[in-house]
Design a protein around this nucleic acid. Structure first.
Lengths: 355, 355
DNA sequence: CCCATCGGGTAACGCGCGTTACCAATAGCG
DNA sequence: CGCTATTGGTAACGCGCGTTACCCGATGGG
């Protein structure tokens, strides 16, 4: 014996208009409403009742319940992204790119932090917790975004849904990833300096072991080789990836040579170091780009666009990588093949005034 | 007549272990599992079956379905935030603060952009769409975050759930909001300069009409008044809120006076302008803070922490505002009273090396 | 010995919706 | 005229779970 629903006598609810309400108001069955709202091709609903239903939807201000829809249809419209928001000056751009693309696809991006302060134990555990939480939400795909280009391990549970790595790559080499074309970026930067007529070019290097440094330098060498030149090891100085590091490295290079042998251009492997380089150059009474041209890397807007003169630099395509990550995920969840396991994204040259 | 469920004969599913599976595996009813998992006080379950159930959960790798749970319990664990991610250099910090706080509360933050590129028509319509989408997800509360302190209109539908404004305030004055204490920040900045012995202080002002400028200047006046001084209108110069604007405004002030009458300190109403001020000062062969002390506002990390010398500035507490927004929302959704309609958040002084 | 209580647990309903099976009334066809 | 399609729609099931009402056996008190 079915219990009587006490709500049955109150057809119009205060909050939360449901499909049933719409059906009653339009004098049709709930199924008809469902068919109209999900306007399926093979549904046989007369044009007249269709408009009657649509009117009812309008009048009642019906709003579908995404959760219930997900439950019934077993599809969720959600992707999850695990990232270190905290320590990320620009992980944010990845999120933005992914978010925007997801929004275009009428999907939501659930963000889970992998660097939460209340975490106990090593960071690994935290990523696990974040991943777990996202899977509880039944996300259809996962994105892992790193704040700098590197190799990572992802939690095992990530295997349960399609997963794409952004700005990092799988240490085990199994998952598809989206990374910047560091080498292409290094090449284009160096080519720009060559094109401006420079032949004696200093390089302010990062930690030589990280993928960014390796790729960018390789690209620089390629460009030089294309011009029949090669990189003078003496002109490559490494330092901390900060303004101070760049300042000191630049001082080293500038003070080592008499005016004649001094490089006429500097390729700084990131913008923060370029910022320090500016100071070192200006302190010595030299002008940019007159005496020394400077080119950076990363395009950290707040630095590059506000330095004086504005810094010519190579952009890291964070937004694009985020968007491409979502697109790749969409392809994977749709069962389509993806182009490549590792997709390189162009690092475009941004002309400003320092070359 | 009930249809037979074809899955019934296949108790162990590939994907998606449900409570029913756990119940079967533990030899109890699904209700018992539910009771144990939501460990309610008044449930009468023996310690033994409780552990048996927990074991089954472990063994099967059961993961609750958040969507179904939300549907059944009519509570959603989600807040929504509407913001302009695109144009936001630091809206991101608001998101981070809110995100972290939400995560601590075991809730998710759904982010909807209010500045999507594909939008047709005015921005208003876009915020509506974003809000609508969030309400479809049955968020329990809404946050609206602006990229700079200002007055806003929120979509009508926001009234359906608790709503809090961050870094902006309701033009109609009805919704609670979280904003920076601009006046307190202006006061603390000026007090710092006074404490360092300066009495002739220049002000590089923003557009004088925006809330930030009004509040900060007011605070500056208060500080001066506290020292028996008052603001010399001639030393207040407005400019565009950019490095170039700051450069030009600073040039004006510096070149207007002979060395004697020149201000010995500058209060720049934002860091970008301070960046330009640095250039103007250095160009004239003056040192910071030796000849001229500089204090900024906003604490844009990439600028303030990397300028040489590092910029002493007043921080805009974006993260804190984001967190407080979520806390306020939590109070509202729990039906608790909130402290005030408009909550001011401290803007703390960050000592670096430019004063 | 009978009834009330209590610990330990279960059956059943409903959340809002997608979806499949089915049904009534017409239209088409030979 | 009888038989099948077709049109227009509905009843009913299940998604996975929270929750309420209820049930059964073991006590315990009078």
């Amino acid at each position: 014996m079915a219990k009587t629903n006490p709500d049955e006598s109150v057809p119009v609810r205060q909050r939360g208009v449901t499909m049933k309400d719409v059906a009653n108001h339009a004098g049709v069955s709930r199924t008809a409403v469902s068919f109209v709202l999900s306007n399926r091709e093979n549904a046989s609903i007369s044009e007249e009742t269709r408009t009657r239903i649509n009117h009812a939807v309008q009048e009642l201000g019906y709003r579908p319940n995404a959760g219930a829809r997900a439950l019934a249809s077993r599809r969720s419209d959600w992707y999850g992204i695990v990232t270190e928001i905290v320590t990320a000056p620009f992980a944010v751009d990845i999120i933005k790119g992914a978010q925007d693309q997801a929004w275009l696809d009428r999907r939501f991006l659930l963000i889970a932090p992998s660097d939460q302060a209340d975490a106990v134990g090593p960071n690994e555990g935290l990523e696990d917790a974040a991943t777990e939480k996202l899977l509880e939400q039944r996300v259809e795909g996962l994105l892992y975004a790193a704040t700098f280009h590197r190799s990572v391990h992802v939690p095992k549970s990530a295997n349960e849904v399609p997963t794409v790595l952004i700005n990092c790559f799988d240490a085990d080499g199994k998952l598809p990833s989206i990374v910047p074309d560091e080498r292409g970026g290094g090449r284009v930067a160096m080519e720009r300096l060559l094109q401006a007529g420079h032949t004696r070019i200093g390089v302010i290097n990062l930690d030589p072991d990280i993928p960014a440094a390796v790729g960018r330098l390789e690209g620089a060498r390629e460009a030089l080789a294309g011009a029949g030149l090669q990189l003078d090891p003496e002109l490559v100085v490494s330092g901390y990836a900060t303004a101070d590091g760049g300042y000191e490295a630049t001082c080293q290079i500038l003070d080592r040579y008499p005016e004649a042998g001094r490089p006429t251009a500097l390729f700084c492997l990131n913008d923060r170091m370029a910022m320090g380089a500016y100071d070192a150059i200006k302190e010595r009474g030299l002008t940019i780009p007159g005496d020394i041209a400077v080119i950076g890397f990363d395009n950290q807007e707040l630095i590059a666009a506000y330095l004086r003169p504005k810094l010519t630099t190579v952009a890291l395509p964070f937004e694009k990588m985020g968007a491409l990550g979502v697109q790749t995920l969409a392809a994977l969840t749709a069962g389509q093949p993806i182009l490549a396991d590792q997709q390189l994204v162009d690092c475009p040259l941004l002309e400003r005034s320092s070359v």
